[in-house]
Every structure is written in C-alpha cells, then in structure tokens.
Design a protein around this nucleic acid. Structure first.
Length: 428
DNA sequence: TCTGGGGTCCTAGGACCC
DNA sequence: TCTGGGGTCCTAGGACCC
C-alpha cells in the first residue's frame, strides 16, 4: 500500500523569527507582508486572538498593541535560507521527497516499517537542528495526507503526528473536516458544495453523482474526490525545479502617476525576472506587463492596464526584454490614473518537453514532408498556429510550401528555422 | 491614509482552418 | 460558387495554493 507523508512547518515565517527571539515561544506573533500591508503568518496564539490570514495591518494595529502581539516585517531571504536547511534534512532522511513549497514537503513512506517512529525521529531532528517545529500527516494520497496534517496541527493529543492508514480512521477524520478545509477547495467551491448539501470531507468523498461533481467542480474536483477515496491522482513530483512562468510584481508604497515612473519600475521588474530565467536556463517567448489602480479604493477611477507580447526569438536577454516590456507600457498606458501596483510575467518557456521532440521522428524522408513537419512544430512553438507562409531557403530567397490544399499559411524565415534546428539537434 | 507576492491548472469561447 | 461541421489553437479569466 502506498503511503505519503506531508511535513509542514508550523507558522513558518513566525517560527523563523522565533529562532532569534526564543523569548517569544508561546507568545502571539504575526509576520506582515511587504510594506507591512497585511498579516501573512500567525502563530497559534495569534490565531486564537482572532487575527485572520490576510488581515490588513492598519485595521488590526490597535488591537495588536492592546493584546501585546509581536509584529515583524518580512525577511524573505532569512525564510528562504531556513527553508533550505529544513528541506535538506527531509531529503537526507527520506527515501524520496518532493519539496512542495517553502514550508512543505511530501515524502513517499510506503517502504518504511514503523512510520510513527520514522515521523517522530524526523520531527525531532528538524527541531534540534533548525528550531523549526513541524507537523506530519500521513495518508494513502496527498489529499488525505493534507487532512492528516491539519488534524496533527489541531489536536494536542497527536503530538504533531497523525497517520490515517485504516479506513476507519479516515472516516472519522473526514467527518471532522469541513469541506472548505479540503486542499484545493476554496471559498467559491465550498459555497457550491454547501448548496449541494455537502458539508464535510466525508460527505464529499461519498457523494455518488460523480458526473455532477465533474460538471460543477471540473476535472480537478473529480480528482480530489478520488484522492479522498484513496486513489492516487496527484503523484509525487521529484523534479519541479523548472518554473513554467516567472513573475515579479509590487504594490507601490505611494501611487505612480507618470509613464516615466511606471516604465522605470517595469524595467526593474524585467531585470529581476530575466535573471531568474537565466538561472533556470530557459528562454521565454512571451512577456506580459500589467499595472493597475488600487481596487480597494473606490474613490479613484479604476484602470487595469494589461498587455502581452509573443516573441519571435526566444530570449533571456535583459535589454531585449525591457524593450518589449516598455513597448507594452507605451501601448497600454493611460494618463490620469494613480497606479498602485505593477508587474511583469514571462512564460511559454523554450526548453520544455513539448519542444524537445525530435522533429524528424517520422522517418519518411521526402523533403517536403520534413519541412512541413518542421513548420508544424514551429507553429506550435511560436504558439499561434497561423504563421502565414513558409519563406525558407538559402540566400533568404522565399521558398513557398504548397500543401495539397494550397494553403500558404506556413511561413517563417530561414534563420528562425535554423535556430530551431540547432536547438533541437535535427540532422540536416 | 494604509489591503503581499509568486505560482499552477482548468475551461469556455473565439478565431481560424479545411 | 455554395456553405457547414468538425477540429485545433489560443486567450482571458476563474479558482486555488503557499
């Protein structure tokens, strides 16, 4: 039987701060987001005092002072560093692990004889070496491990470890879990579930009309239901090092009111994402830029500037990307608005599986067929299926492809073709 | 006065093609 | 010249997660 453990750090950012302030153990602590905007991490003591996730700081400031809640501004480089230490221990101690986020990791514990003993040892070791407390939940699937973990956090008796191996235990656990606590069911979907009379995770698991589940909650909802039944739908992913999109965005302390200032910020964000994409060794073929006014402020006129650009040549070059980004700002910028937030996102990375197929995998060797095949891939890779007609040939002479239906929609340039050729190791 | 930042996945519907 | 049904690709946007 397959068993998956989820190790989750308790109130991670707060716990990181406590490493240097052991006097705050057992005291309420809150960590705020950028610009001290809102609460993003709370200890159990702070939760008990009613501090909500995402609560705007200006609304709770007085209350925090009154209740002597200790407030910290974020220190992401610290958290990243501590996270790495914790994850390294988990990887060292486990047969195989997937680092899922900054404070969580899944472990395949199927082969381990005494899972309780293993969990206890791991938990102790992490605490001893990093001073970060963790909870561990075990179940046949990721979704069940998540539920086990939630219970481990809640129940004092469990001492931070809950193992949901037997069906009987799962029944009890699921009946005690309201739907909105299920991993992957957020506010919108839990409201829909309640309307269907589904209140607990057990109700959801046992809901017979799976067609309806699929219809309302889409494929993901159906997969979740199956996971709760103990059927694995989300396997462990050991190789998630490469991102599919990278973004950088900021809320401004005060608003930005000129095109020049906005361009300056955008250029900064671009250099940030460009560095990241080079670090992961990819090139991107799409860039998105957005800037928006403050949606929380109803007094000011609202505008959401948003534009994207497909790049013919994949790149990670900062200057090229900045050029593209500023062009988008140039097109989308409107005078007279107070911009409160802006960001840049790059995506459609070159270097992913689907683009690495051998273009000549079909061994039929007629030249025309080969070229058509390349064109199809190129179309795919350019992401728009409507390349006009193929201009391809030595000396840059146009060389038109004729499909039997005389479509002339496939075009590109020889350089581009050669570039693609090079990258994918096609033998000419 | 002050409301984070960085991701992933899915679907509906439009555009386009044959 | 007539025109429809079916397929594919792409985008916007929703929902969710940490």
């Amino acid at each position: 039987m397959k068993l998956i453990a989820l190790v989750d750090c308790n109130s991670f950012y707060c716990s990181c701060e406590r490493i240097f302030r052991p006097d705050l153990i057992n005291k309420p602590v809150v960590v705020l987001s950028n610009n001290d905007g809102c609460a993003i991490s709370r200890t159990t003591e702070a939760k008990a005092l009613g501090i909500e996730m995402g609560a705007p700081y200006f609304k709770i400031k007085k209350y925090c002072e009154l209740k002597k809640i200790h407030i910290f501004s974020t220190n992401f480089s610290l958290y990243t560093d501590i996270s790495r230490r914790v994850m390294n221990i988990i990887i060292e101690e486990s047969p195989s692990a997937e680092v899922y986020s900054v404070d969580e990791a899944f472990i395949d514990v199927s082969g381990i004889k005494d899972i309780e003993e293993f969990s206890k040892r791991l938990k102790e070791k992490i605490y001893k070496k990093t001073k970060i407390p963790v909870s561990i939940g075990v179940g046949p699937t990721k979704a069940l491990a998540k539920i086990a973990n939630n219970l481990a956090k809640k129940s004092k008796k469990s001492k931070g470890i809950v193992i949901l191996k037997e069906k009987r235990l799962q029944d009890v656990a699921l009946a005690r879990t309201p739907v909105e606590k299920i991993w992957g069911i957020g506010r919108a979907n839990s409201e829909k579930m309640n309307r269907l009379g589904i209140k607990t995770a057990k109700d959801f698991r046992d809901y017979k009309n799976t067609k309806l589940i699929q219809k309302i909650f889409t494929k993901v909802g159906l997969q979740l239901q199956e996971e709760l039944k103990g059927e694995i739908r989300f396997g462990l992913d050991y190789d998630i090092t490469k991102k599919k999109e990278i973004m950088c965005s900021r809320t401004f302390g005060s608003t930005v009111n000129t095109k020049k200032d906005l361009k300056e910020s955008v250029a900064n964000y671009v250099s940030d994402v460009a560095k990241k994409i080079r670090d992961q060794g990819s090139l991107c073929t799409k860039i998105t830029v957005f800037a928006r006014t403050n949606p929380h402020n109803e007094e000011v006129p609202q505008y959401y500037m948003h534009g994207e650009k497909k790049l013919t040549n994949p790149t990670s070059n900062t200057f090229k990307l900045i050029e593209h980004a500023l062009e988008i700002v140039e097109l989308g910028y409107r005078e007279g608005y107070a911009y409160k937030k802006a960001g840049v996102r790059i995506s459609n990375f070159y270097g992913e599986k689907e683009y690495q197929i051998d273009l000549f995998e079909e061994q039929e060797s007629e030249e025309e067929k080969k070229l058509m095949h390349v064109m199809d891939k190129l179309n795919n890779y350019n992401g728009n299926g409507t390349i006009k007609s193929l201009a391809c040939g030595l000396n840059n002479d146009a060389f038109k492809m004729n499909r039997n239906h005389k479509s002339q929609r496939y075009t590109t340039h020889w350089d581009e073709l050669m570039y693609f050729n090079q990258k994918t190791n096609i033998k000419k």
